[in-house]
Design a binder for these strands. Structure first.
Lengths: 202, 202
DNA sequence: GATCGATTGGACTGGAGAGTCCAAGATTAG
DNA sequence: CTAATCTTGGACTCTCCAGTCCAATCGATC
């Protein structure tokens, strides 16, 4: 293994992070450090050598998750027609929401709202907020192009995002009901886009 | 105090419940029984005499909260015009969401999704689900009356509820940003209703 | 092979909280 | 007054977990 003399082993740093992701997703923010250590195949002390505390581990791990998850939200193909673009946005949104890791990150952010506000804040900023902002920009551009008429693009983006997500996020977080199929996602995406366009047609 | 021989004191049962509501709202589901006891002005043992365990106390308390909160959702004045009725629905929805007790109940349901699924289930059924169902019925009636055209009222109800709630619930739960003012609520309710009607006009 | 520092496992401390136990005190029916 | 039963407070047990400590070990470099 490529590692300098007595230097911290980077592979372990990663293994710990991966384990933390899994364990926190499964057990929630109350997961024990022992469990993380076991899963990472590492001793508890080693975790404390790499990250100083549980809070720090959670922080780093959520940063990484945020980056990983929001990467999917980065590609709004603004070149298509409005309907195609909106449906695409909806599809991605639903997929991210239903991804177990997306869900668990959200739950972490909610549960930890008081104990670790920076985490909640980071998740919200990088997730919903950034995503809506990008959509709002798209809507503004379409409005300038005369294909839509959104006097308040930010509000319109909120509306569209909400239509797509609705209670589905809550439901998934509470583990209620069956997961959405690909066909469900497709139907919702198309219908939401169509209705939205009707609501905001010039 | 009106109480039978050596019978459990009903006034205390209530005091405990009230205290539990407050404490769980403030401290989250991790609040200690000692705290509840202190707040209720009662000894810990007495709580265990009335409710057998923490889980049971939480269950009873959440049932009560559910009833209290969803009572507000019970009055869709279907007699008004669609715009007025929808705006009214939106107003109530936002108010319930922003009520600290509504928020804390939701958070409880999410945190406890694994450890007490019945609670999550009850909250979801009595809250979002019942509320959307009522709205869907209203939309179906309006469709029959020819004032709207909702081929799938359940889906349309999801869309409208989502527009209104959107990221606002998440935001409030994570304690991010300022609370909505009455003026905000009014503006959102009216705009959402207008856009929805445009999307579903016959 | 000697050295330096990371790693390990396992014991340990300290704190918090659920739930139990009990002896003393209060309340009410009869 | 007495009996029955609840209430109290406070000590107590158990369990779980964060974080520390340490002696033995391992691995890369020189």
């Amino acid at each position: 293994m490529a590692r300098a003399v007595g230097q911290i082993d980077v592979a372990k740093t990663e293994a710990i992070l991966d384990a933390a992701v899994d364990v926190l997703a499964e057990r929630g923010p109350l997961a024990s450090m022992e469990e993380v250590a076991r899963r990472a195949g590492v001793s508890k002390q080693t975790i404390y050598n790499h990250y100083g505390s549980k809070a720090e581990l959670v922080r780093v791990m959520s940063d990484r998750r945020v980056a990983e998850i929001t990467a999917a939200l980065d590609a709004p193909d603004a070149l298509e027609d409005p309907h195609g673009a909106l449906a695409g946005y909806a599809r991605v949104l639903l997929q991210v929401l239903l991804m177990p890791r997306g869900l668990s990150l959200f739950r972490l952010a909610m549960v930890g709202a008081e104990t670790m506000p920076e985490v909640s804040h980071a998740v919200f900023e990088a997730g919903p907020r950034a995503s809506r902002r990008r959509l709002a920009e798209f809507l503004a551009a379409e409005t300038r192009a005369g294909r839509l008429d959104c006097p308040d693009p930010a509000e319109a983006a909120e509306f569209f995002g909400g239509m797509v997500v609705s209670t589905r996020q809550t439901k998934a977080m509470m583990g209620i009901g069956p997961a959405l199929t690909d066909a469900d996602i497709e139907r919702i995406a198309i219908e939401a886009a169509a209705r939205f366009i009707r609501a905001y047609a010039p």
